[in-house]
């Protein structure tokens, strides 16, 4: 609660500085709209539903892309544990791809898949796969050998040991990977929507800029931040749930 109060104070201060800057008249209100203007256009966009529509569209893309990336990362992570030989074949390729920013591939993706949903989802998959894969792999590979021996002693099969020991050992790492991956997907989708899209929060911002509506631009930015923080907060709660035993 205390923390909450301090956050509120910080936000109020920021708003005050913003208001002062507007009143100083250095920038025209077209460039820097006052907080009240931003709030009213935010409310207007909420009321007529455009904001929700764009949020839902961006979210949908993120969820699909993130889901695919998570599935792939889980498979590759499991393979790294179960079939370490196989990993030798694809490990270097993944290491290479990890260093290529997905936005740099957007030109090719648009050529190959057009500006439709497919290329955006691929961008999200590329952006969120690597942080998830690296964390999930780490979780699976570093499962405690001593605990695994307990499973052996109780006569568990390889599969049972995997489900009952390796997976629980890996869950904290998996959740951390998902949390980072979700943050990455959210950033990537906004970038992709600003390059080529007809809907979504990134498009909302770009469109507002082209119409010189900086109040809407700022409203869009605020929305992106709030949605990102909310998603992250949800994940943090999940992680804390799981690690409740640790204290």
């Amino acid at each position: 609660m205390k923390r909450f109060g301090k956050t509120a104070v910080g936000i109020c201060l920021l708003l005050a500085v913003w208001q002062l800057a507007v009143m100083s008249g250095i920038w025209s209100t077209y460039v820097l709209p006052p907080p009240a203007k931003v709030a009213s256009s935010l409310l207007a966009m909420m009321r007529d539903g455009t904001l929700w529509k764009h949020i839902l569209i961006s979210m949908r893309r993120v969820l699909i892309g993130f889901g695919i990336a998570f599935g792939l990362a889980l498979l590759c992570g499991m393979a790294a544990r179960g079939l370490p030989r196989l990993e030798e074949y694809y490990g270097s390729f993944l290491e290479f791809m990890r260093h290529v920013p997905p936005i740099s591939l957007i030109a090719l993706l648009i050529l190959w898949f057009g500006i439709g949903e497919t290329s955006k989802i691929i961008i999200i998959v590329l952006a969120s796969f690597f942080p998830m894969y690296l964390n999930i792999r780490q979780g699976f590979v570093s499962a405690d050998r001593k605990l695994l021996e307990v499973g052996t002693v109780f006569g568990l099969s390889r599969w049972q040991r995997f489900c009952r020991i390796v997976v629980p050992c890996a869950i904290p790492d998996i959740l951390v990977g998902m949390r980072i991956g979700l943050g990455y997907s959210w950033r990537a989708i906004i970038g992709a929507e600003m390059i080529a899209a007809a809907s979504g929060l990134g498009y909302l911002i770009l469109d507002a800029q082209q119409m010189s509506r900086s109040d809407r631009v700022i409203a869009g930015i605020l929305t992106i931040g709030v949605v990102g923080v909310l998603c992250d907060w949800l994940f943090r709660i999940l992680i804390q749930r799981w690690q409740r035993y640790g204290d």
């Binding site: 001593k146 307990v150 629980p168 869950i171 035993y245």
Partner: peptide
């Protein structure tokens, strides 16, 4: 053939 093993450390599952 059923053995119960108690290791030098407890080796309980922390979760």
């Amino acid at each position: 053939g059923k053995l119960g093993v108690i290791f030098q450390e407890p080796r309980l599952m922390p979760w």
